[in-house]
């Protein structure tokens, strides 16, 4: 599914009744099955953009098209949040069941299959509080993929995890994405992570955020490790050419 995003300036009022411009005008087009990363400084409006695409926030003037049609409730969009956001009172199986749209007899089979694919089948009756943080993120990935979403929005899904766990989750994500390709928009603070996972990177300016660079990634994803030599090389080139890019200036 392709996504066309066109948003006019996004303003919100904070607790002190002060008007804050979260986003400037954003216009971009994402090709079907493309893995797009958004990189920008804190508070630049990346999550606001995700929330607008996901329908959690309504922009003043917005035009989000999926396959040239306005986004609606029929579109299957999944969200992987910064924290796993699993319901602690539901077992892993029921957490995934909760977001399943249909209630068919095959549902049990479908959930068991996805738990198996994510190597979680043995823990299906466990509660989120009894498993590790890395495993919880894995469950939230499984939950996101269970409905075969047309669009997958990921907001810093691997933040504050140790390197081996993060790399394991990269592997799980990319393998599953290759099996069931979908359009992914992935927010990260780490340029290396964006270069490793993404096909394309949208660099955002400081608040109010706008796209300051639309960059096509050249590095290959293999090996799927953060110290991938190709990624390191490309990282150095970008840093040399645009030393202030990660601070939100081109």
């Amino acid at each position: 599914m392709s996504i066309s995003i066109s948003i006019k300036e996004q303003i919100y009022t904070n607790k002190d009744k002060k008007k804050i411009v979260a986003l400037k005008e954003i216009n971009t087009f994402i090709k079907p099955k493309e893995f797009v990363c958004i990189v920008g400084p804190s508070g630049c409006g990346k999550t606001t953009l995700m929330n607008i695409i996901g329908g959690l926030v309504k922009a003043r003037e917005q035009k989000i098209l999926i396959n040239d049609k306005p986004i609606n409730k029929e579109n299957s969009i999944a969200y992987v949040f910064q924290t796993s956001r699993l319901m602690p009172w539901l077992t892993l199986f029921n957490n995934i069941k909760l977001v399943c749209q249909e209630d068919s007899s095959d549902l049990k089979k479908k959930i068991s299959q996805i738990l198996k694919n994510f190597e979680l089948l043995d823990f299906q009756d466990s509660f989120p509080g009894t498993i590790s943080g890395g495993m919880r993120r894995k469950v939230s990935l499984a939950r996101a993929f269970v409905n075969n979403p047309e669009v997958l929005l990921m907001d810093e899904p691997f933040v504050s995890l140790d390197q081996p766990t993060t790399e394991n989750l990269y592997k799980v994500l990319i393998e599953y994405w290759k099996k069931k390709p979908t359009t992914i928009i992935f927010i990260t603070h780490s340029l290396k992570e964006a270069l490793l996972l993404g096909d394309r990177i949208l660099f955002f300016s400081k608040r109010p955020g706008e796209i300051i660079l639309d960059y096509k990634v050249k590095s290959k994803r293999i090996p799927l490790k953060i110290d991938n030599k190709g990624v390191q090389k490309e990282y150095d080139i970008i840093n040399k050419k645009y030393p202030n890019l990660l601070r939100g200036r081109k």
């Binding site: 329908g55 959690l56 319901m87 029921n94 909760l98 977001v99 749209q101």
Partner: peptide, 24 residues
Amino acid sequence: EYVEVAKFYNISKKKLIFHVILPQ
């Protein structure tokens, strides 16, 4: 944040009440 998950995944009102709100 749990209600947001429910909203985002467009889950039914019944599921929202019985599996998200009531357990809390």
